[in-house]
Design a protein around this nucleic acid. Structure first.
Lengths: 224, 224
DNA sequence: GGGCGGACCATACTTAGGTTTAGCCGCAAC
DNA sequence: GTTGCGGCTAAACCTAAGTATGGTCCGCCC
């Protein structure tokens, strides 16, 4: 699982490798964690505060965030909420020396990967990081697919989007034509254009794209 | 949300209403919770042990389970694992007087709805129950749809299942025919039979069914 | 005002999808 | 041993889908 180049120089920074971010106001904690992660070949970047982390431009690789629940200015929990509100969905692993159960519940409900009490075993932290990175990798892959689909869908004209919705809902060309008040031949032309622009290789393919885009199944039909 | 018949006799048991199950070895806790839930019109059934709960035949309505983490024989956490292993997916709300963070994390990771520390506010418990019931309702709805689809798919002959897989993957009839080594006309016959047995109103409809059943997209073909 | 793109439509043609009717083969159940 | 079913196929026929080619109309931008 680890890349096997663990013994290479500390700043090899291959753009493919995941990154672990650490935020803790205690430098000794940061160093200990950095050493732990580097010992298994994981790129690590540590910050002394949430603010510093936000300055850092987000790298475009799978990553996760190790966070002490008791941060200087902003609490770890509040920072988690901030990130979510800002649309940053990096998986978070909390650690705490004096946490309580309500905090834990709140963090986990908000999607935290794990919540470790200090002192924790190195292996527990590494397991949590593995899970977190994997989760982020999946999320990024899905986001990428979705972004591509959305871009393609946005390149359709309004009419084409409308036809795509009706076609993927299962209507025949003539039904689509009647629905929007045009000739059947016009629908066929739109349809061909849709297949090209969306790069769909078949109707089932297009239907799956529509599913991912969340098009049409809720409305049912015959409204508006 | 509540049915509005809260003042009716204690055992009106309309089959539509959700049920809250309570397991606690302390009778006073059981009574207090039962009273709380009944005061807002929720059917409630309480048990003194996990064993008693398992004896009870599971009602076919949305429900949830309130569980003390410290159960007599089996711990609440282990019981949660038992239920999961047995394929019983009722949402669980834990409560505890002396819980710790690792327990909380384990419970939440395993899908618990909430983890309340005693003493808790009534409203917190009611909120958790509302969430849990809603979650179970959704899960049941999805399970029902899935079960119906599986039944329909099981009614297909092996050949029909194979053809459905290929057709929903986007292959044309002639390609399917070549793939399985039969004449195109045979594929058409199978296909018509599939549409009837699956009660699909259109190809997009069938594709969506295949998606839910998890058929065929992994195998791919002609990608990239 | 000319060019451009979106939307529309017609004719003509080809391919794909789908049904009906009818029949053959093999196998398992009765 | 006959009946039923799954699987297969053919012929005939019809509808649906898709692709040119060619053209109109409208609004927008430079």
């Amino acid at each position: 699982m680890v890349t096997g180049r663990a013994a290479s120089p500390p700043t090899h920074t291959n753009a493919e490798d995941p990154i672990v971010f650490v935020i803790d106001d205690d430098a000794s904690v940061r160093d200990a964690l950095s050493n732990l992660f580097r010992s298994v070949g994981l790129r690590t970047v540590a910050f002394g505060s949430a603010h510093e982390f936000l300055q850092h431009k987000p790298a475009d690789v799978p990553s996760c965030l190790i966070l002490d629940i008791r941060l200087p200015r902003l609490s770890g929990l509040d920072f988690q909420a901030e990130l979510a509100k800002a649309g940053i969905h990096i998986p978070i692993i909390f650690m705490t020396g004096h946490g309580d159960i309500p905090m834990t519940v709140r963090a986990m409900k908000a999607g935290a990967v794990d919540f470790l009490t200090k002192p924790f075993r190195d292996q527990d932290m590494l397991d949590a990081v593995t899970t977190a990175i994997e989760r982020d990798r999946n999320r990024r892959d899905e986001a990428k697919v979705l972004a591509n689909l959305r871009a393609a869908f946005a390149s359709l004209t309004p009419r084409e989007r409308q036809v795509m919705t009706l076609v993927t809902a299962g209507l025949m060309n003539k039904q689509v034509a009647a629905e929007i008040g045009v000739a059947e031949i016009t629908v066929k032309i739109h349809r061909g254009q849709i297949m090209r622009k969306m790069a769909a290789k078949s109707l089932p393919d297009l239907v799956r794209m529509a599913e991912i885009l969340g098009i049409g199944q809720a409305s049912g039909r015959a409204q508006t």
